[in-house]
Design a protein around this nucleic acid. Structure first.
Lengths: 305, 305
DNA sequence: AATTGTGAACCGATTCACAGCT
DNA sequence: AGCTGTGAATCGGTTCACAATT
């Protein structure tokens, strides 16, 4: 994580001076949270005792740092893997290692969703899975629509049911008349003009935009008009959305460029120290390959991933 | 995002451990400045005139916050777009809007790479493009290898030259014998056993892992052995790498789950306030669709995206 | 008059370190 | 004896606000 993650979106909205959020994932991210920092506390203290259903659920849910939410998803994966191996209990240390974070962070993250561990022992895998799933809203299905059935859209549509169940793909859209009606991954492609109707009919909650840059904003507007409140955007553009809509952005170009930056930095450091300059280990290509060449501007962009 | 995530791994451990405990200097917030603003100044003034190569480059490059690096890539895109429209000058306000951030953040970010604006006027588009490209190391080509030619790998390989030039895909790998030798996007697929050789021969600097979870760590190890120091990982696993290797992770499942969380949160809020509960606007599906159904554990995972 | 560049305040997120429970 | 849960300290990044500069 390192974070960065991540990616993330952006919000801009009309509202009165919105700070805008965004993040990027790169890990880090920022988001706007607002409200007060209610300093943690409170709920932790509540006399837990018996299992109360729908406890102070909303109280709790609020105020989980966005960064922690992303990690909860990672913990969930690690936990599922443990469950498959019939492991019933884990310590924060073990789980943290599996998830690639340190144990203090893990415990803090888990504390945001409640106290489900046993001191001196650890956490029960199944219990934790249940609690995280509940917190992330995974106890309900979220219909997904994919717009733009190019290479990427195809890839996304092609495994029925997104990232492991819970996210059934229930609609596909493209501009291309030749594609309309053709089933991809079992679902026939609809025309982009029908986004509003189809999405509201099929109760789509998450829209995935895998179109070229040009069409993206238009598609986004239609998804929103169709009642979609969450968007995962692969197009390299900052989408404009009303504030009740959540956007997450995955930008391949940005990811590559961040990596490029690190290569450059490392090379510089090497030069800086060795001065006479040869990078260590695997080092720099030096020889044949590239050099300037007037980078054709790293952004004619993705186009139809 | 996605800090989210994203994630950055290798981190320089340079720092000494912790300062720690007792010696707390109470309250003295004497800020440590350090890194950040390295003297700034100076160079701005230099009689630029001629193009000076490698100025105080290394000094500058160090210490750019990771989050800022990600945003520089976004600014670059916006700038390229402006350049295409033959716009030669922008103010921080305009550029910030185009990039979806606020102007103070943008100026601060740009200040990390130097002073290339003109007070009272703004920034020259071409100059800024050049500086950002240099900072991100885009003045050099970075050969890319894609491992795992499933749906996603296909999509990635299929537009020759990754995200807009500068990132030529120069090697493809898969386990499947039937795929080996078949050209995809113009490049013949090699066998996964040849990763080390091919990567070092073709001087691959960035490896993209688009394999199922199982193979990912093994593939990663080979890429590293082949001299690859940057990895973009689409497999839902925390890769183990030596510290000089930089990993960025793109995790679709996590992205979806974060969105799911926001849906859940919104619904809760709606219930919390309206109590009798109907969400506003586009609102909740309410009717027919999903409900629990024993989420088959949101993580049997991606597998061969 | 306009707009950059940046110190300093602010704020959220991470880490420490230990009290509290089993 | 062990491990969780969490206040408190620290860190890093964002925002403010204004002096500097054209």
């Amino acid at each position: 994580m390192p974070e960065g993650d991540g990616q993330t979106s952006a919000r801009t909205a009309a509202s009165p001076r919105t700070p805008d959020a965004d993040a990027t994932d790169a890990g880090g991210n920022g988001n706007r949270n607002e409200g007060g920092t209610n300093g943690s506390q409170a709920n932790g203290a509540q006399a837990n005792g018996s299992a109360i259903e729908v406890p102070a659920a909303r109280e709790r849910a609020r105020s989980i740092p966005e960064a922690a939410v992303a990690r909860l998803a990672v913990y969930l994966r690690a936990l599922s893997s443990l469950a498959e191996q019939d492991i019933t209990t884990v310590s924060s240390e073990e789980l943290a290692t599996a998830a690639g974070v340190n144990s203090a962070k893990l415990r803090k993250d888990l504390s945001y969703i409640g106290s489900y561990g046993t001191r001196g022992v650890g956490y029960e895998v199944e219990v934790l899975i249940g609690q995280i799933e509940r917190t992330l809203g995974l106890t309900r299905k979220h219909s997904v629509a994919v717009v733009g059935i190019g290479n990427l859209g195809h890839a996304l549509a092609n495994y029925g049911g997104f990232p492991g169940r819970g996210f059934p793909v229930s609609a596909l859209f493209d501009l291309d008349e030749d594609l309309v009606g053709v089933p991809v991954g079992g679902i026939p492609v609809s025309h982009i003009d029908d986004i509003v109707d189809v999405c509201s009919q099929r109760e789509v909650t998450i829209g995935v935009i895998a179109t070229p840059t040009q069409g993206a904003q238009e598609v986004c507007d239609r998804l929103v008009a169709g009642g979609v409140t969450c968007i995962l955007n692969f197009a390299p553009i900052v989408l404009q959305v009303p504030e009740h809509v959540e956007v997450r952005k995955v930008d391949l170009a940005v990811e590559m460029q961040i990596l490029s930056f690190h290569v450059a930095r490392r090379q510089q450091e090497a030069v800086a120290s060795g001065e006479s300059g040869q990078v260590d280990g695997a080092g720099p290509p030096g020889g044949g390959a590239g050099l300037p060449g007037e980078i054709d501007s790293a952004n004619r962009m993705v186009e139809r991933l």
